[in-house]
Amino acid sequence: MNPSLITFAGLPGTGKSTIARHLAPRLPAVWLRIDVIEQCLRETQPERDDLGADGYKIAAAVAESNLVAGHYVIADSVNPVALTRDIWSAIAAAAEVPQLRVEVVCSDDDKHRHRVQNRRPDITGLDLPDWQGVLSREYHPWAEADLRIDTAQLSPDQAVEAIVAALE
């Protein structure tokens, strides 16, 4: 397999980071988690109310340098709209590597709500959205996704196998 950019999109609580955590050592890949970058920005710039696309821009720069160096990169974020998704496509094109666009969904609303309501942050200081926050979040389904993973149907290990198969 040649190094690729694996771009995730999906609402909070669907399982993106869980899948990325399992996938990164399997490839191996650099795992760029937007939540980590944005939390660092919040801590170092507490006067800012809105981070805008800064976390995505930082992650994109790090992704490009790692792709050029020959590494797999996993871009793990909500990627809610075309604007953020296009950032990753531009990086893959600039680095001249393939991009696998993966939308992670949870088709079982009860399971999804349970995950959101019962998860604990694994990033110090990160405030996770509640269920209402997830429901009210702007998110456009990713029609251009190459692969759609439904975590109501697949375990994290099964999702990893589906992604690895798609990369081959």
Rank of each mutant, 00 (worst) to 15 (best):
S4V: 04
L5Q: 12
I6E: 11
T7R: 09
F8T: 02
F8D: 11
F8S: 10
L11V: 01
P12N: 03
G13N: 05
T14N: 01
G15F: 09
K16Q: 07
S17L: 07
A20C: 15
A24N: 03
P25I: 03
R26G: 00
R26T: 14
R26A: 15
L27E: 07
L27M: 04
L27Q: 02
L27I: 06
A29F: 09
W31K: 13
L32H: 03
D35G: 10
V36Y: 08
V36E: 14
C40F: 10
C40T: 15
C40Q: 13
C40V: 14
L41R: 08
R42L: 01
E43N: 14
E43Q: 15
T44L: 14
T44Y: 10
P46Q: 09
E47Q: 14
E47C: 07
D49M: 05
D49G: 14
D50T: 03
D50M: 04
L51R: 04
L51M: 10
G52C: 11
G52R: 03
A53M: 13
A53S: 10
D54I: 08
Y56C: 11
Y56M: 01
Y56V: 07
I58C: 03
I58P: 05
A59E: 07
A59H: 06
A61D: 13
V62K: 08
V62N: 09
A63L: 05
A63F: 06
E64A: 10
E64D: 11
S65Q: 15
N66L: 00
N66E: 02
N66S: 00
L67G: 08
L67I: 02
G70I: 02
G70R: 09
G70W: 10
G70P: 06
H71G: 07
I74D: 01
I74G: 08
A75P: 12
A75E: 03
D76I: 10
D76T: 07
N79C: 10
N79A: 06
P80S: 11
P80T: 09
P80K: 10
V81F: 11
L83N: 04
L83Y: 01
T84G: 03
T84P: 08
T84Y: 05
R85M: 04
D86N: 14
I87L: 14
W88I: 03
S89H: 15
S89G: 15
S89P: 04
A90H: 11
A92H: 13
A93V: 12
A94V: 04
A95W: 06
A95L: 13
Q99L: 07
Q99R: 15
Q99E: 15
L100I: 03
R101M: 09
V102G: 09
V102W: 02
V102L: 06
E103I: 05
E103A: 02
S107A: 00
S107K: 03
D108A: 03
D108S: 11
D108T: 01
D109V: 02
D110K: 12
D110Q: 12
K111Y: 00
H112K: 05
R113Y: 07
R115C: 02
R115M: 09
V116G: 00
V116K: 06
N118D: 02
N118V: 06
P121F: 06
D122C: 08
